[in-house]
Structures are given as structure tokens and as C-alpha cells.
Design a protein around this nucleic acid. Sequence first.
DNA 1: GGTTAATCGAGACGGTACGTCACGTCTTGTT
DNA 2: AACAAGACGTGACGTACCGTCTCGATTAACC
Lengths: 212, 212, 212, 212
Amino acid sequence: MSQRPRHAPDPARRRETSRRAILTAAFELAGEVGYSGLSIEGIAARAGVGKQTIYRWWPSKGAVLLDALMLALQGEAPQENAAPQDDAALPDTGDLRADLKTVLRATVAELNDPRFDGPLRALAVEMLNDPLLAARYAEHIEKPMRRMKTARLHSAQRAGELPQDADLGLAVELLWGTLRAAWLERHRPLTPAYADLIVDTVLDGLRAGARR
Amino acid sequence: MSQRPRHAPDPARRRETSRRAILTAAFELAGEVGYSGLSIEGIAARAGVGKQTIYRWWPSKGAVLLDALMLALQGEAPQENAAPQDDAALPDTGDLRADLKTVLRATVAELNDPRFDGPLRALAVEMLNDPLLAARYAEHIEKPMRRMKTARLHSAQRAGELPQDADLGLAVELLWGTLRAAWLERHRPLTPAYADLIVDTVLDGLRAGARR
Amino acid sequence: MSQRPRHAPDPARRRETSRRAILTAAFELAGEVGYSGLSIEGIAARAGVGKQTIYRWWPSKGAVLLDALMLALQGEAPQENAAPQDDAALPDTGDLRADLKTVLRATVAELNDPRFDGPLRALAVEMLNDPLLAARYAEHIEKPMRRMKTARLHSAQRAGELPQDADLGLAVELLWGTLRAAWLERHRPLTPAYADLIVDTVLDGLRAGARR
Amino acid sequence: MSQRPRHAPDPARRRETSRRAILTAAFELAGEVGYSGLSIEGIAARAGVGKQTIYRWWPSKGAVLLDALMLALQGEAPQENAAPQDDAALPDTGDLRADLKTVLRATVAELNDPRFDGPLRALAVEMLNDPLLAARYAEHIEKPMRRMKTARLHSAQRAGELPQDADLGLAVELLWGTLRAAWLERHRPLTPAYADLIVDTVLDGLRAGARR
DNA sequence: GGTTAATCGAGACGGTACGTCACGTCTTGTT
DNA sequence: AACAAGACGTGACGTACCGTCTCGATTAACC
């Protein structure tokens, strides 16, 4: 069931310093040279590490990048057995509209952070080519985040702020997905006002006479 | 005397058969081997063409792909001086909701077409790495399409189906962008029902008590 | 207090089973994969031994091979303090020509033995690249053999079968060296007749009218 | 019959400057770093050439080395259709003994030339591992040389200086082979006196009473 | 209709990165 | 302390494509 690849390396013998050096180098290089300029060879050189040490522990360039981002974002790479921040939750003041604006504005700020732009784009591109990487990302980042988001919407549903039959998954896609697409495809500058606009429009809809 | 600069090929002498062979090969290969397996050498070999013939007429692999897709979709690559289907328009029966569902269902059908999935994905990836290509795409495909979409929404606005102050650009992003993201990132199977759901949710919003 | 320098292993604690396994593996692998395919990693893996155990006791791949051959040939690897077969001698029937043919035919048989061909070639190649190994080989194999050969020739000299001023060293090179070169460079099939021919030609010379 | 490997490159398009640069670099590096330090990568770097350009035209490192030596020795690499110096011949003054000494002394001088020692050794080692290379060497160098040598001995045979039934091939091996072995395995310093000694001993034999 | 110049196919070239292999050193338990 | 195991930094391997650059051999426009 939990079948390992041939000659699986022993994680207990793994050298932590090399792991950190690799992830740091990958993160920095992704920011400096972008996705298309990122290479395993470059990461190994910058990290002062043999290429084999990368190939030993990661199945692909994208997997390195994912761990690098998780290290940079959360201060730690995903642990197989450790649930990542189960206690984290979105703010819940009782006012869904205000809370969503707060959160989407924070997302805007994060996506505008020049340190994360390069690595995040590189990871996004990698995931389009690599379903396994996308699955890993979904497992470790997408799913927990989506759970938090859905939880907040569900709370609003219970409070009567959202209809009982609302499709909360689609709501997440409309709110955050639209923001993410605007960032990824650069067709809009990301501003707090844009975040607010998304929230208002998604909550109120486009129907004539809708009041905000 | 009026000597052409060294690297300005003469379009009049261009060999049409080679052009078609290249675009066809690019389209087919993108479908067969995906983005990461697509190479200029592969296209040239499959097309029975010298590499230089590609480099002479296209600035990048992505540009070839774009033309290949336009040839496949519209039966013709973009002409610099020809306005692309100015007369095309979205259906306008007076019922915005129904018209949008019709159009989004058609989009679902197109994105589900296995012939287009590979090339479209490949182009999407290329555009993330190549702003010039993205600009070219925007110019020749995105903008005309967006104009059509916005025109339909504007018509609805005039008919009182949408509020005067609605942000039609955002509306387009919510409607089609969400669908495109679901396709590109594969987090939902694309079905007509999903298209309908998007239309309803975006038109009506998420507020409690929203009428559908 | 009387602390041993860090890298001076204690021969008393050496594990004999590992030593044998290493030498056996080296000998077999040299026969199977040839010189260019022979690797320390391969030897260690086949012997079920850590690489360090090889590096601890032998200075180079060639040194392992040398010991492996001595184990296979003489049943024992060279001991630093043990004189190697001092009592061994070439046959001395009083007929130099006959005795030399006997010995060279035996050499032919040994070189034709498929079990030894691979390892011997591998060792020969190693020695060309590694003067220290060549010296070690000379010390433990070449010199004792040469002493035996020279002794037999010297005996013939005393018996009047060879002139007093004959260069016995050169004689050894002409007799055995020519045979060895024919084997190593494969420019002749090694047959007993060839051995006889060498003996006759070297003893009699090429001059016209030479008696055989 | 004359089947080429898949996708055989077109010799007409070959760049002569690159060929020379590669052969020169290989020759120099073989002298500087020896066989074990010689690498395709090193040759390519020193020659300012892509590795593929080497792999395109030569099947192995040894083949490069062979051509490099032929360029250095004869001023030209082997041409498929050109017979290499058919007119060349060993001196023939009518005195075999003197002529052989002249030639072997010249060989001594060549083998002692520090420029050739490294490359020649490297080639010798390569040939032991690579029968195809050895065959190529035999074809282009060994055979022509051997023909010249045999011709001189045959001439002596006709002149009555050698017996009619002498094995001229073995004679060549005894004369030059012994010299070459002494050089390759370094068991003797190569001096003109040693050359003379070989000639005298091989011509006269070791028999008691042989007069010179 | 013959001339001529640009495009064409083909592919060699100097490079960069790939993913693998073995090197010799080192580190971590086990015997 | 030697051992089996194997991770590590290093560097060469042989391959795939990159984008540039020659080569004749077609073309196709212009004389």
C-alpha cells in the first residue's frame, strides 16, 4: 500500500542543513530568475549541494519549489504526520462582508509581495504541467485553506447571512479564484479596492436592483 | 539602394505550404506530448521543415502555438491588417441569464474537446512565462472576445437586466474566468450544470434571500 | 595516551569474512564486467560490504584486484611479513630448451584460462595508470617470478648452455614479455606452438645458418 | 554492407577548425593530465567546442586520441581513401643489424619524447579496453608499420642475412614489441644501448658460443 | 523566359541543463 | 573499533534542445 520507490532513501539520515540550503536557494532563485530560468543545476550550485541530493529527496523541480514555498510561508515544510495548522481559522466577527474584505485584502497584500511573486508564479506553472505536484499542493495547501474558507462561509450560512442552498465551493472559487486569476494572468492590478469589489459583487450578484 | 535590412524576411516570398505544415505539426504535437514535451525541433521534424523557417517567421514557440490554435479554431491565423470577425456577437434573445448559460455551455463543450485541451493548456503555460505572447494573445483573442462579452452585458444593462453601476469587466472575469480556472487547474469537472451554476450564482449573488 | 593516529586501522580487528568476500567479489566482477565496468561500489555491493571497509584496507581499486588475483592464484594474499614461496623454482632437467618450453606452455595455459583473463587484464590496465600499484605488483609477483626465471637461466649459463655475457634480464623479457604482450594486445592466438616458437627463436636467434 | 549508424552526420559539412581544435586539445590534455584525467568534457572545454560535436564525429574518447596522435605524428588524421605513406620504408643499407639499430634507436627517441609519452600511454590503455579502437589502430598504424618492418626483414631474408624459414612476424614482435613493453611498463629506462642490445640478442640468439 | 536573390530543407555548431553513475569522505547505528 | 549502510559534495557521463550559422536546391518575382 505505502509502497516506496526503488531504493528509498532513509529520511532519518537526511542532512537538515542541506535541505534548508536547497529550499532557500530554490526560493531565492525562483524570485530572481523566474520559472523559465530555474534549474536544478542552479539550485544545487547556489545551495552548495550535489545535484543527486536534490534528486534523492524530491521527484521534480516543482516539488522542491513547493517545499521551498511552504518553508518560506509557514516556516516549515509539510510533515507527513503533522496536520498543518489545524487551529488556524479565518476571522469571524459576525459580519461576513467585512471579514471577507479583510481576508481578500490580506491575500492581495501577499500576492503583491515581491518576494513571493516569482516563486508562486513558478509553482503555478509547474503545477499546470505536473498533476502529481498539483495533487501534493492540493493536499498540503489548497485543501486546508479551502477548509478554512468554507468553514467561514458555513458559519455565515448558519447565521443566516447566506442562503442554505448556496454552493460554498463555488463561492470560494468566485472570491479567491478570481483574485488569483487576476494576479496570475496579470489582467488587473491587485488593489484592496479590487478585493472589495469582488466581495461586494459576489455577495450581491449582478441583478438589477441589487442593493449593497 | 533600398536594400532591406538583413533580417527582415519578405512575407511575399513566404511558402504557404511550410507555414501550414508547421502550424499543423505544432497543434498536433501539443495535443500528443503536452506543453513540456513540445519543442521547436520536434515541430520542425514533424513538419518536414528546417528550424530556421520557424525562427524566421515566429519569435517564440508560444507564438507558433498561438497561430496554430487560431488556425485550428477560426480556420485562419491572425492577419495584421484584417479585423478578426468584427461582426461576431454573442446571442441576445433579451434573456441575459439564458443567453449566458448558452454561451458558457458552449465554452464548456469547447474546453472539453480533447483536440483542444493539450494545445490550449500549452498556450496557457507559455503565456504565463512570456508577457509578449500574452499581449499578442490579448490583442488577437482575448480583447475581441471580451468586447463581445461586454457588449452583451451592456445590452442587458440598457435593458434594465443589470444595474447601471455594475462592473462589467469584473462580471466577465467572474463568469468566464471562473470557468477557465476550473478547466486549467482541473479542480472541477466541466459540465453544463457547472456553467449554469456559475451564471446563476454570479447573477444572483450569495446573499440570503436572493431570488433565483 | 598512546593514541593511534586517526586513520591507522588495527589489523588485528580486521574481519576476515569481509576481506574474503571483497576479494572474491572483485575477482568475479573483473571477469564479468571487465576493467571499465569494475567499480568499488559494485564490489562492495556484491560483497555485501560497506564501501568504507574497502577504503580502510586498500589504497585503490587496483590494490584490491591485485590481492584478489593473488588469492585466486596462490590461495593467499600477500602477507607483509611472509616470504612468498621462496622454495618455488622452475623445472631444471638440464635441458634449458625443453624446460623453457614446458614453462611457457604452462604460461599459455594460464593466460588462456577464461577465469583469469578478465581479472588479469583489469590489473594490467590499472598498473599502467598507477605506478604505486605497479610497484606493489613488482614487489610481490613480478620480482619473485623474475628471480625464479633468472635462476633457471643462470643455471643454464653455469652449465654452458648460455654464454657468460648473456643479458639474462633481457632474455626474460624476450621470452615471457613477448608472450605476455601477445596475450595483452591480442595480436596472436596463444598456442603451445607459439610458446615453442618463441623459445626456439630466442635461443637460436635469427641469423642465417642458425642451428635449431 | 557499409551501413552507417542511425543519422550519420554529413562529413562535407564538418567544420575543420573545430576538428583541429578538438584534436589539439586532446593531444595536449593527454600529455598534461594523463589518461585517467582525460575527459571528453575537458577536451570540449579546452577546444571551445560543444560536447556534442565530439560525440557526433568520434565513437569514443580513444578514437579522438587516436586521431589526435595521427595528426601530431603524421600531420594528418587517417583518410578513408588515402593510403598512409605507402612509399615510406625502413632504411636498407644491406646491413640488417645496423639498419635495425638505427630504427630502434629512433623508436627509443620517439618514445622518450615527453610530448608523446602521455598521449601514447593514454591510447595504449584505451586500446586494452576497446577492441574496436584497437582494430582501428591496427588498421591505420600498426599494419602499415608492420608491413614496413616485415619488408625490411624480407629483404634481408632474400639477401641471405636471415634464414628462409624465419618467422618474420615473431621477429617484429621480439624486436619492437620488447622495446614497446619496456616503455609501456617502465621496467627499463629506454636507451640507445638497450635498443642495440635487443637487436644483437634477437639476431644472434642466446645459444652458447654465438658470436657477434 | 531567364536571371537572380530570398526562402527553403537540412543539419552542424557552441551552449546549457538534463538525470545518472561512481568517486572518496562522512556519519549513524550495530556487532 | 570495525562493520553495513548509505547520504553527502563532486564531477564526468551521454542526450536533448536551444537559437545561430552555414550550405546547396528550389522557387518566385522581376527583368
